[in-house]
C-alpha cells in the first residue's frame, strides 16, 4: 500500500500555515473545489447530493435529537430502562427520519458516577443523535488528556465532580457510540418533556457539561 509520503500532488499544510489564514483558506478551497469537480465529472455524485449532505448536518441532525431523548428518559421510567438496555432501538422514534443507526449505548450519570465520552484514536462521536462533533471534541488536548486526567479537563469546562464520585471514561475505539444520560436537575418537578429538553446541553450528553439549571431558564 502506498503512503502519503509518495503522494506527489499534495500541497502540504505546513506551507499553507506559513502563509497565514487567508492564503491557507484559498489554497484549501482550491483543493476542495478540485475534489468536488472530480467526483462530479467522474459521475460518482452530483452537486445537489453534496449540498444535501451538508444541509442535513447543518440543519437536521444535531444535539436537539439527543436532548429530546434525555428529556423523555427523565419523564418516562420505562423509556429510561429501554434506553439503557438498547439505545439504538429505544431512540429510534427520535432519530432523523425515525431511525437511529447502530450501535448506540446510553450511559447514565448518578451521584456516584460521572461518565465522559472520548475517542483517542480519531473523533468517533454519536452523529445520529448529536450531529457533528464540536471543535473541542476533535482537539488533541481533549483526545490525549481525557483518559488520563479527566478531572483537570472537566475543570477547564467549569465542571466539578465530587471527589469521591467515580469518573468513568468511555474511549470509543470501535463502532459503538456512546451518549451520556445526565442527571435531571433539581427543581424541575412537573416540567414538560419539551421544557426539560431545553435544559439538555450537547456537552451534558458527552460528559463535559451538566444540564442547565432551571433557575437560568426564562419565564
Amino acid at each position: 500500500m502506498s503512503t502519503h509520503d509518495h503522494h506527489d500532488h499534495d500541497h502540504g499544510h505546513r506551507h499553507e500555515h506559513d502563509h497565514g489564514e487567508a492564503s491557507e483558506l484559498s489554497e484549501t478551497e482550491l483543493r476542495v473545489r478540485a475534489l468536488q469537480t472530480i467526483l462530479i465529472e467522474k459521475g460518482y455524485t452530483d452537486p445537489a447530493a453534496l449540498d444535501a449532505i451538508v444541509e442535513t448536518y447543518e440543519t437536521r441532525i444535531g444535539p436537539h435529537i439527543g436532548a429530546r431523548i434525555v428529556a423523555r428518559a427523565w419523564t418516562d421510567p420505562a423509556f429510561r430502562e429501554a434506553l439503557l438496555a438498547d439505545a439504538s432501538k429505544a431512540a429510534t422514534p427520535f432519530g432523523y427520519h425515525g431511525k437511529v443507526g447502530d450501535h448506540l449505548v446510553a450511559v447514565e450519570n448518578t451521584p456516584e458516577r460521572h461518565n465522559m465520552v472520548v475517542c483517542t484514536l480519531c473523533s468517533c462521536y454519536p452523529w445520529d443523535v448529536l450531529g457533528l462533533p464540536p471543535v473541542w471534541y476533535k482537539s488533541f488536548a481533549y483526545r490525549s488528556r481525557t483518559v488520563k486526567e479527566p478531572r483537570a479537563v472537566l475543570r477547564e469546562f467549569g465542571v466539578t465532580v465530587p471527589e469521591q464520585a467515580e469518573i468513568r471514561v468511555w474511549d470509543s475505539t470501535a463502532e459503538v457510540r456512546y451518549m451520556v444520560l445526565p442527571e435531571r436537575p433539581a427543581g424541575t418537578e412537573g416540567w414538560s418533556e419539551e421544557k426539560l429538553a431545553g435544559l439538555v446541553t450537547r456537552d451534558s450528553m458527552i460528559g463535559t457539561g451538566l444540564p442547565r439549571s432551571p433557575a437560568g431558564e426564562g419565564a
Binding site: 483558506l25 467526483l39 450531529g131 464540536p134 482537539s139 479537563v153
Partner: peptide, 27 residues
C-alpha cells in the same frame, strides 16, 4: 497539547469548504 479550548460558537462548519470535504468523503 495544552488545555482544552472549550469555546464553542455552535457553528457546524467553519468555512464552507469543511462541509464540502465532509460531503465528498461521505459520498
Amino acid at each position: 497539547f495544552g488545555t482544552v479550548d472549550t469555546r464553542d460558537d455552535g457553528v457546524v462548519f467553519h468555512g464552507k469548504w469543511e462541509g464540502q470535504v465532509m460531503a465528498a468523503s461521505r459520498v
